[in-house]
Structure formats: C-alpha cells, structure tokens
C-alpha cells in the first residue's frame, strides 16, 4: 500500500507544480517561468506535501497515544494553541526581529496543548471527555487570540488573522520552507520510531508498561514530536483542519487497526490530501481563491460526524 501511496503523492506533487493561473509559465519567457515555478509553485507544493504529511502523522500518533479515533490536532485544540502562540510572535514584533521566533512559538504552543491533553486524558480516554477537552482548549485559544488582537496596534489585525487562521499555503516563499521544514522533518523522525509502543498501548497503559514501554519518556517524545510537527506547520500555514482525522481514518481498516501501522500510510495520505485540496482550491472558479483550511474543514467535518456516530456504535466506545 505504501508504494502506491508514495506514487500518488509524487503524482500530486507534479500536478501541483503544473497548476496555477499562469499554467505553462515558460510561454512568458524563461526567466518569469523559472521564477513562477521555483519561487511560487515549488515552495507551495513542498509545503503542502510536508504539512499534509505531518498533520496526517500527528493525527495517527495522537489517536494511537490517546487510544481514540477522534483525536486530531485541529479538533482537540493543538492547532489553535499553535496558532495563538504564532499570533503572539507576530504581533509582538518578535517574528520580525528573529526569523525562527514564528515556528518556535508555534511549536511551544502546540507542545503545551498536547501536554495538557495528555495530562487530562490520562485516566479516561472517553470520546466525550476528549472532545470536551478539545472544545475547552479551542475556546481558550480563540479567546487569547482575540485578546492579543485587541492589544495589537494594527487596525487590520482582525481581518488578516481570520484569513490566516483559515489556513493557506498560497504565496509562501522559500524562506518559509527553510524555517519550517527542518522542524517538521525532525518531529516526524522523532515519532516514526514509536510505532511498536503505540501498538502496545492498544492494550492500555499498564499492559504496555509490562511489555517494556517506558510510557513517561514515550509521552515526552510524542509531545515533542507532535509539537514540532503541528507547531511548525501551523506557524507557516495557519490551521488546516481535519487532515489528521481523515488520513488515519482512511488507512486504519487496511492495516487491521494496528496503531503503529497507521503512521506511515497516514503520513502519505495526509500529504496526498493537502496536495489534492490545494490543487482543488486553485481550480475552483471562485472570485478569489478559497482558503485551504476552509476547504479541508468543509470536507473533513462530515468525517468527524461520521466518526462520532461510529464510535458510539462500536464496542470500543466509552
């Protein structure tokens, strides 16, 4: 399966390089053609692939760790916290003074949210308690974002931040790729090796420990990894929701529900989803381009509804 998914991602990446308002840009001259492809489409397609990959992977990791098919960076508030931290970095002027402030703030915000969740949901991973926790974290993050915006001297802060939070990878240049990609790749490397312990956790924390899992250091490792991935992704692209929910959902039955086995396919499906969604929003005949996050939410929210209903029906529901 992974080989086919890899092929799909590669294909979508190439399509993403080929699609845009200018279509075949070399007809405008070699120099403009290269500028359009190299400065605009390559960063966009690469960011789309990386962001989709880490969001899908983060969803799979969180679902395995919390043993809950509804855990997702957006739904449970991790993206919102990363967004809040990035907004702080932005409006304090820190991001302008120090390039890495933006991704680092995002990473700190995301890691904090994951840590909060892991602490709160340690005892019971019931669907309802998890979603309520997500509602609370999302609400706090939204309120804090409003607070920062109210304190901002920029009168257009509200408008631009609502646009930014809706998630987009349009017109990000190579600098963005350079500051975010290393963190995303590092985060993925940190969590990808944890698959066997996520497998063990499907028997509960005690049994996992009896099988040799060091759950405390595992928790730290996953918090750091998800924080790096979601934080860096959110700080350059805003909130792109539901990818982390849909990707593991699509692959789970095909890997016989083993949490560890969902990691790599979820990453690939996530990358394919975001690349595909980003191609679709470019082609949709809307007056101005639809925000990527808006599109993934429109498609993803029904998935959440379905997953909640299935979780109620399934024997594993709490």
């Amino acid at each position: 399966m992974n080989r086919w998914l890899l092929l799909l991602v590669a294909m979508l990446y190439l399509v993403s390089l080929a699609v845009g308002p200018a279509w075949w840009p070399w007809r405008l001259g070699t120099e403009v053609g290269w500028t359009i492809v190299w400065e605009l489409r390559v960063p966009r397609a690469t960011l789309g692939m990386l962001i989709g990959g880490v969001l899908g992977l983060s969803g799979a990791v969180l679902q395995g760790w919390l043993r809950n098919p509804l855990a997702e960076p957006g739904v449970i508030g991790v993206s919102a916290c990363a967004g809040f931290a990035a907004v702080c970095a932005f409006y304090s002027g820190l991001a302008a003074a120090f390039v890495l402030a933006l991704p680092l703030a995002g990473i700190a915000g995301a890691a904090l949210a994951v840590a909060l969740l892991m602490g709160a949901v340690r005892a019971g991973t019931g669907t309802v308690s998890l979603l309520l926790m997500g509602v609370a974290i999302n609400a706090i993050a939204a309120a804090l974002i409003s607070l920062v915006l109210a304190l901002s001297p920029n009168p257009f802060a509200y408008q631009e931040i609502s646009l930014w939070l809706a998630g987009s990878i349009v017109d990000r240049d190579l600098r963005y790729l350079a500051i975010a990609a290393p963190f995303m790749i590092l985060g993925a490397a940190i969590v990808l090796g944890a698959g066997r312990w996520l497998d063990a956790l499907s028997l509960g924390e005690d049994t996992a420990r009896s099988l040799g899992a060091d759950t405390r250091s595992l928790g730290l490792r996953l918090t750091l990894g998800v924080g790096l991935m979601v934080g860096a992704a959110t700080s350059v692209a805003g909130v792109v929701g539901f990818v982390g929910l849909i990707a593991p959902h699509l692959v789970r039955a095909r890997v016989a529900f083993r949490p560890g086995a969902t990691l790599v396919p979820s990453m690939l499906v996530g990358a394919a989803l975001v690349l595909g969604a980003d191609i679709v929003v470019r082609l949709l005949p809307t007056a101005s381009e639809l925000q990527l996050g808006v599109f993934t939410s429109l498609v993803g929210a029904p998935f959440l509804v379905r997953a909640v209903r299935k979780a109620h029906a399934a024997w594993l529901a709490t």
Binding site: L203, A256, R258
Partner: peptide
C-alpha cells in the same frame, strides 16, 4: 484485559513478543 482497537487476533498475540 481488553484492547482499544479491533486488532486481528494474531497481531494481538504478537504484542507479547514486543519485549
């Protein structure tokens, strides 16, 4: 003892080989 996911029985048993 229970499992949180509907694993395949053989996979479940194989978890005992993690150590």
């Amino acid at each position: 003892a229970s499992a949180y996911w509907p694993l395949r029985a053989r996979d479940l048993v194989a978890l005992g080989r993690l150590p």
